Amino acid sequence: GSSGLPPGWQSYLSPQGRRYYVNTTTNETTWERPSSS
Rank of each mutant, 00 (worst) to 15 (best):
Gly17Lys: 03
Thr29Ile: 15
Leu13Phe: 08
Gly8Met: 06
Asn27Leu: 13
Ser35Asp: 12
Ser36Trp: 15
Leu13Thr: 09
Pro6His: 04
Tyr12Lys: 06
Pro6Ala: 05
Glu32Pro: 01
Val22Tyr: 13
Val22Thr: 05
Leu5Tyr: 03
Arg18Trp: 09
Arg19Ala: 08
Tyr21Ser: 00
Tyr12Met: 09
Ser11Gln: 09
Glu32Met: 09
Ser2Asp: 14
Val22Pro: 00
Gly1Phe: 11
Arg33Asn: 08
Val22Ser: 03
Ser37Phe: 11
Gly17Leu: 03
Pro6Phe: 03
Pro34Asp: 01
Leu13Ala: 03
Gln16His: 10
Leu13Asp: 05
Gly8Phe: 07
Gly17Thr: 00
Pro15Asn: 07
Tyr20Lys: 03
Pro15Tyr: 05
Tyr20Glu: 03
Arg18Val: 15
Leu5His: 03
Ser14Val: 03
Arg19Glu: 15
Gly1Leu: 12
Gln16Glu: 15
Pro7Leu: 09
Glu28Leu: 06
Thr30Trp: 07
Thr25Asp: 10
Tyr12His: 09
Tyr20Ser: 01
Ser37Asp: 14
Gly8Lys: 04
Ser35Tyr: 09
Tyr20Arg: 01
Thr29Met: 15
Thr30Pro: 00
Ser2His: 13
Arg18Met: 13
Gly1Tyr: 09
Val22Met: 06
Ser11Leu: 07
Asn27Phe: 11
Trp9Val: 02
Gln10Val: 15
Arg33Phe: 13
Ser35Trp: 10
Trp9Gln: 00
Arg33His: 11
Arg18His: 15
Ser14Ile: 01
Gly1Ala: 12
Thr25Leu: 15
Trp31Met: 06
Ser3Lys: 10
Ser36Glu: 13
Ser2Met: 11
Thr25Gln: 13
Pro7Val: 09
Ser36His: 13
Leu5Lys: 02
Pro15Ser: 09
Ser3Gly: 13
Ser37Met: 11
Pro34Val: 02
Trp31Ser: 06
Gly1Pro: 11
Thr26Ala: 03
Tyr20Ile: 06
Asn27Ser: 08
Gly8Arg: 03
Asn23Tyr: 06
Ser35Thr: 14
Pro6Ile: 05
Ser36Met: 13
Gln16Trp: 08
Tyr21Lys: 00
Gly4Phe: 11
Pro6Asn: 03
Ser36Val: 13
Ser3Pro: 13
Val22Arg: 08
Pro15Lys: 09
Val22Gln: 05
Gly8Pro: 09
Gly17Phe: 03
Glu28Gln: 08
Arg18Phe: 12
Leu5Trp: 04
Tyr12Trp: 06
Ser36Thr: 12
Thr25Gly: 07
Tyr21Glu: 00
Arg33Asp: 07
Gln10Phe: 12
Tyr20Asp: 01
Val22Leu: 09
Gly1Ser: 13
Thr24Gly: 06
Trp31Gly: 03
Ser3Leu: 14
Asn27Met: 12
Gly4Gln: 11
Pro7Met: 08
Gly1Val: 12
Glu32Phe: 12
Trp31His: 06
Tyr20Trp: 06
Asn23Phe: 06
Glu32Thr: 11
Glu32Ile: 14
Thr24Val: 11
Ser3Arg: 09
Gly17Ile: 00
Leu5Asn: 04
Glu28Ala: 06
Ser37Ile: 12
Pro6Asp: 03
Ser14Thr: 15
Pro7Gln: 08
Tyr12Gln: 05
Thr30Asn: 03
Thr26Leu: 05
Asn23Pro: 00
Asn27Gln: 11
Gly4Asn: 10
Ser35Arg: 09
Trp9Thr: 01
Gly8Ser: 05
Leu5Cys: 01
Gln16Val: 07
Ser37Ala: 12
Ser36Tyr: 13
Thr30Gln: 10
Thr24Ser: 09
Gln16Asp: 15
Ser14Gly: 09
Ser36Asn: 13
Gly1Gln: 12
Ser37Arg: 07
Ser2Glu: 13
Ser35Pro: 11
Ser35Gly: 14
Thr26Ile: 04
Arg18Pro: 05
Pro7Gly: 06
Gly17Gln: 03
Gly1Met: 12
Tyr20Gly: 03
Tyr21Asp: 00
Ser36Arg: 07
Ser37Tyr: 10
Ser11Phe: 05
Ser14His: 05
Gly4Pro: 14
Gly17Asn: 04
Arg33Ser: 06
Gln10Met: 14
Pro34Arg: 00
Ser3Tyr: 14
Ser35Lys: 10
Arg19Asn: 06
Tyr21Trp: 11
Ser37Leu: 12
Thr25Ser: 12
Pro6Ser: 04
Ser36Phe: 14
Ser14Tyr: 01
Pro7Phe: 08
Asn23Val: 00
Ser37Gly: 12
Arg18Thr: 15
Pro15Gly: 06
Asn27His: 12
Gly17Ala: 01
Leu13Trp: 10
Arg33Cys: 07
Trp31Ala: 05
Gln10Tyr: 12
Trp9Met: 01
Asn23Trp: 04
Tyr12Gly: 06
Pro6Lys: 04
Gly8Trp: 06
Ser37Thr: 13
Trp31Ile: 05
Ser11Trp: 08
Thr29Arg: 13
Thr24Pro: 07
Ser35Phe: 11
Ser11His: 05
Glu32Gly: 04
Val22Phe: 09
Thr24Leu: 14
Asn27Pro: 01
Leu5Pro: 03
Glu32Leu: 12
Arg33Met: 10
Tyr12Ser: 04
Thr29Lys: 14
Tyr12Glu: 05
Ser37Gln: 13
Leu13Lys: 05
Tyr12Ala: 08
Ser3Asp: 14
